Computed example of a mutant assay.
Amino acid sequence: MNNIIEVSSLKKSYGDVQAVKGIDFSVQQGTLFAFLGENGAGKSTTIDMLCTLLKPDGGNVTIDGFTLGADDEKIRNTIGIVFQDSLLDPLLTVHENLIVRESFYGKSRAELKQAVERAAAIVDATEFLHRAYGMLSGGQRRRADIARALVHTPKILFLDEPTTGLDPYSRRKVWETIKNLQTETGLTVFLTTHYMEEASQADYITIMGKGEILAKGTSIDLKQKYSSDLLKIKPKEKELLRAQFKQNQIMFQDKGETFHIPLTSTVEAIPLLKLYEDYIANVEVVNGTMDDVFIHVTGTEVQV
């Protein structure tokens, strides 16, 4: 699979502050790529440079074969951006907003109509296409925002925290839209989010901190490297099981009613359960999470 974004030695400073310190990463075409980092990590600065909104101090970036700094207009025609704060006019209908957006590309009336109808259909916005944007629910607005970014048929869609502030149902609808987009169009999605359960759905994840790339890999790879699974055991007789653990030199934590045993992988629980099954009243195996990964890599809690 080809890389549609290539970033090499990208730098940006604000006075004496190095916001981005010569970072390298790539994004494969057609994938869902999650770009994570705590506030102040340099994440937004990086995205602004990729989207031609901010000029880098150094480094090289190619997007769909175009060079940042030399082919910026072509890059802008290749990408779509959904900002955290909407750019649509609340007094206009969704249809009117999309027509205004698409008119920037010099298309005929027939081409405008076709492009707007296509974008609305992709994000399942047809039912509220002729309603004022300001009258829509949060989830509907976000789908309209995505439609706005799609009217010129980009190859890459940048989504800046697309579900922040939405209720669970609206978040699910937005994610259904994103997944359908990839399935139906082969679109590359560049995602930023503070919801780690969303990030775990990505094909590839890159974590940034203090202007540098701290970790990258698949969700499975990162969990395996930076988090641990946990075996929770509720004993029949607590002191009897404690004695067994000590006799066999099993590392555990006493959590009151349960004992917690860290695991490098879930399969490690199988021999332990067989060995101590006569002492166990109940058991639960908890997988490591992307929250664990984020905290381990950045040293900070996830902020939502």
Rank of each mutant, 00 (worst) to 15 (best):
Q18N: 14
V20G: 02
V20H: 06
V27N: 07
T31G: 11
F35K: 09
G37R: 06
E38P: 12
N39W: 07
T45P: 07
L50S: 06
L53I: 10
K55N: 13
P56T: 10
T62K: 13
T62V: 11
G65Y: 09
T67V: 11
G69P: 04
E73V: 13
E73D: 14
I79M: 13
G80P: 08
G80T: 13
V82L: 14
D85R: 14
S86C: 15
L91S: 15
H95Q: 15
E96G: 08
L98A: 09
I99Y: 11
I99A: 05
I99P: 03
Y105K: 10
R109P: 12
A115H: 06
A120E: 04
I122E: 09
V123F: 02
E127M: 11
E127K: 15
F128D: 03
F128V: 12
R131T: 10
R131L: 12
M135E: 14
S137R: 12
G138I: 08
Q140H: 11
R142G: 08
I146P: 03
R148A: 13
A149Q: 12
H152V: 11
H152L: 09
H152K: 14
T153A: 15
P154C: 13
I156H: 06
I156T: 11
I156E: 04
L157T: 11
F158C: 13
F158R: 15
D160G: 14
T163M: 11
L166Q: 10
P168S: 09
Y169P: 02
Y169A: 15
R172F: 10
K173C: 13
K173E: 15
E176I: 00
T177K: 08
L181P: 05
Q182H: 02
Q182M: 09
T183I: 01
T188A: 03
V189A: 04
E197N: 10
E197G: 07
E198D: 07
A202I: 04
I205V: 08
T206K: 07
M208P: 03
E212L: 10
I213N: 08
L214S: 06
L214H: 06
A215W: 05
S219N: 14
K223C: 06
L231H: 00
L231K: 02
K232H: 00
K232D: 01
K236C: 00
E237V: 08
E237C: 01
A243I: 00
A243V: 00
Q244T: 01
Q247V: 01
I250Y: 05
I250F: 05
F252W: 07
Q253T: 04
K255F: 04
E257Q: 13
E257A: 14
E257V: 13
T258M: 02
L263V: 07
E268P: 02
I270E: 03
I270W: 00
L272M: 09
K274V: 00
E277M: 06
D278N: 12
I280E: 01
V286K: 09
N287H: 12
T289R: 05
V297Q: 08
E301D: 05
E301V: 09
